[in-house]
């Protein structure tokens, strides 16, 4: 269920972003807890959002903190599910199952194609 990038491409993405492309490229991480209903909903909502609004300019990683609890501490996760927008800056956290799509888009500074 998780689409995982290897560390090389992550670094590349980061460097690319630093090179001035951050307005275009979204680096997103979703922290979930196994396959609870909220987790599943959050993943589904995020996929939908990326496909509809960020086609071709996003990198997404889903992390199950049941399996990697140390990552929860590193990313300072308290609430699950949490979506962390690492790029473009500023860093932002979206908590909850992302069902309030409008709020997410607003927070990501994405204007809706109407």
């Amino acid at each position: 269920m998780a689409k995982k990038n290897d560390s090389d491409s992550k670094t590349q993405a980061f460097e690319k972003a630093l090179a001035g492309d951050q307005a275009k490229r979204y680096v997103l991480r979703l922290y979930v807890t196994g396959s609870t209903p909220k987790s599943v909903r959050a993943i589904r909502n995020l996929r939908k959002l990326c496909e509809e609004h960020l086609q071709g300019k996003y990198e997404m990683e889903v992390i199950d903190i049941y399996q990697q609890p140390e990552l929860a501490q590193n990313a300072d996760i308290v609430v699950t599910p949490t979506l962390v927008k690492r790029l473009p800056l500023p860093l932002r956290k979206f908590i909850g199952d992302l069902s309030d799509m409008e709020q997410v888009l607003k927070g990501m500074d994405i204007t809706l194609k109407s």
């Binding site: 909220k38 909903r41 959050a42 909502n45 609430v79 699950t80 599910p81 949490t82 979506l83 500023p90 860093l91 932002r92 956290k93 979206f94 908590i95 909850g96 199952d97 992302l98 069902s99 309030d100 799509m101 709020q103 997410v104 607003k106 927070g107």
Partner: peptide
């Protein structure tokens, strides 16, 4: 830094 977007 936080946006609340649903159930958590």
């Amino acid at each position: 830094e936080i946006e609340e977007t649903g159930e958590y």
